[in-house]
Write a protein that binds this DNA or RNA. Structure first.
Lengths: 202, 202, 202, 202
DNA sequence: GCGTAAACGAGACGGTACGTCCCGTCTTGTG
DNA sequence: CACAAGACGGGACGTACCGTCTCGTTTACGC
């Protein structure tokens, strides 16, 4: 169990204070330099109150991140204007911009490297992003039905082609996360899974 | 400077012992659970002998990893049978297999997440892999000349399309690293940058 | 106030359970290693129920000890056969044996060292043993009247000479608590306060 | 091993700072309220430097106390004017005064109660006071030879009669530690072991 | 070959953070 | 409203390593 089970006895005030402290400290000093003690002190909370409800620093930060996106989570919908390429470019540009934001980077980078070592944390994160992944697949499927993707395209593979290069550039800082890069990724992926050329009718 | 400058006074025996100890300990217990003290003890060496020549644990492990591939490093050549697709599949399958090897994984995973936080280490690693990257680019260019890739394909982008999905699957364990996956990556990338179809003259 | 004021609302069942748990735990693990939480848990009681009625662990254990000797406390009478020496030897031998009993030792040792630091607890204990002290003094006075002690002997000093060496040997484990030791203490004290030798009239 | 083995590597500066801090803190706040962390902080020392050389807080304070009396320790000699009673009164009065000194009390009280629970510490203390005990016994023996004590008096028992009442009054605060009390103890003990009355020569 | 300066093993040092323990108080239902 | 249950802020515990800093002791060069 990575995330904390709510309990009627639990102090909501402390929970919020811990998550806020964790978020702020990580943004300020970076994931690695933040410890449980610092979070507890900043939150005005005993260490035990953290250990009681979370198994690790990763779990706390993870929940802090999740709490950020929780408000708007009601329903995830990606743009669907009918133009798959345009829509994907919009989304990937936004993703690239997000990765390029220092505050977001500070929060998410440490969490990501932590997930590379902690399978439980990774599983929790996957669960958290499942809805978003689904929405992405839905949009691709819609494009597929509209004849903008090959009918037998593996949509998961398409997603990996779109996002993995972005992810790798961000994590390893091997290249800039520009709108142009996002555009070219979309173009390449769509070319790779373009529907077969039509045969002109006689 | 991440790697150590050699000196005539330096004890080669200690250097080897430290690198071996670092490699073995990381493979045994994982990067995060290995500390400088443990490396020094296992190597039968004073801590200072490590701090004298390396700036961080990452640098030691990095050099330990580099030492592994140092023997065969004289000249890197990728297969070039004339069939770009076949050659790339060979290479990517090998890469996938390497990532799937537990010992390699243990060594390289911690180093990778460390690079995500330590720019110096990342720079050193990039330098170390520059030759290999070059070789990959060369093979693509050769294929390009042979008409198996569009003349205006961005070869770096092709490499990212090929390797980033592999990297991400490996790091985040989001999917299996099979030969089939490697094949499909190669096929997709080549389709994305296929040369323009010839228009038959009427 | 060291001891608890009784109240009609108070649960006698809880009170007994707490005292029993305290006694048992102290005998099992020693005074220092027993905490309020352990007592509460063993007694099947909330911590607050302890804090509501007792000010400290010392007070609980003290009352637990007192409860042991409460049954027989109606009237304290020391033996008075007319032979002071014999009677005192009997009593001191019994005291020595009591100190030598491991269960008694475990209970009383921690309480004693606590009293060395907590004046309130010490006062409460003194009050508790006042009747016994009185009885001892009575027996000495009786012997004094019978001409077995000097008429101007300071009976409190006699008691200190009798009991302090026993107490010190027990607390600091500086010697065995044997019947022989008890006997020799009695003999020495009585010699020290023997009535003046009669001068035979010529 | 309760006390610390000296080592050439050991920092004398740290050792002194720790003992001084321990002594001062105990005198200021009392044994029970002083912890290892406070000692380390006051001494400007890492906790580990304490744990490296001492097994417990008791051992540190014990050594701090011992260090106090170390200077004058060359040779212990008790006064021997030929008048045993006068000499003993001098010594016991001094002891009573020492116990009554608040700074000494603070230091020694906690240590004493600790010894009641920690046999190792008690053994170390006994060793430390062995020379003094010997000197006391010597003085008694000298008085014995001078015909001021019965030839078959058990000198250890005499010492217990002299010191135990003082000790008990001090520890349990059951009476004042006055010069008068010291005098009366000496008188009582000497009466108890007075040599047999001489037979007047005809 | 012989000083001498470095690099060495060893490990003590001042620190920081860990995760656990228990304190005494506070809060939340239940009987 | 006393009770059981137990969460809470607080803070000390003893451990593990960090990176720095002496200690003698090799060791291999320049004289």
């Amino acid at each position: 169990m990575t995330t904390s089970h709510r309990s009627p006895r639990r102090s909501e005030r402390s929970r919020r204070a811990i998550l806020d402290a964790a978020r702020d400290l990580v943004v300020e000093h970076g994931y690695a330099k933040v410890g449980i003690e610092a979070i507890a002190t900043r939150a005005g909370v005993g260490k035990q109150t953290i250990y009681r409800w979370w198994p690790s620093k990763g779990a706390v930060v993870f929940e802090a991140v999740r709490a950020l996106s929780e408000d708007s989570d009601g329903e995830i919908t990606l743009p669907d204007t009918g133009d798959l390429e345009a829509d994907l470019k919009l989304v990937l540009r936004a993703t690239a911009a997000e990765f390029a934001d220092p505050a977001f980077d500070a929060l998410i980078r440490g969490l990501t490297t932590e997930m590379a070592h902690d399978r439980e944390l990774a599983a929790a994160y996957e669960e958290h992003t499942a809805a978003l992944e689904d929405a992405k697949r839905q949009r691709l499927r819609s494009g597929q039905r509209a004849g903008q993707l090959s009918p037998d395209a593996d949509l998961d593979l398409v997603l990996e082609l779109l996002y993995a290069p972005l992810f790798r550039r961000w994590l390893l800082r091997t290249g800039p996360l520009t709108a142009d890069f996002a555009d070219r990724l979309v173009e390449a992926a769509l070319r790779a899974f373009a529907p077969a050329a039509e045969v002109s009718a006689p």
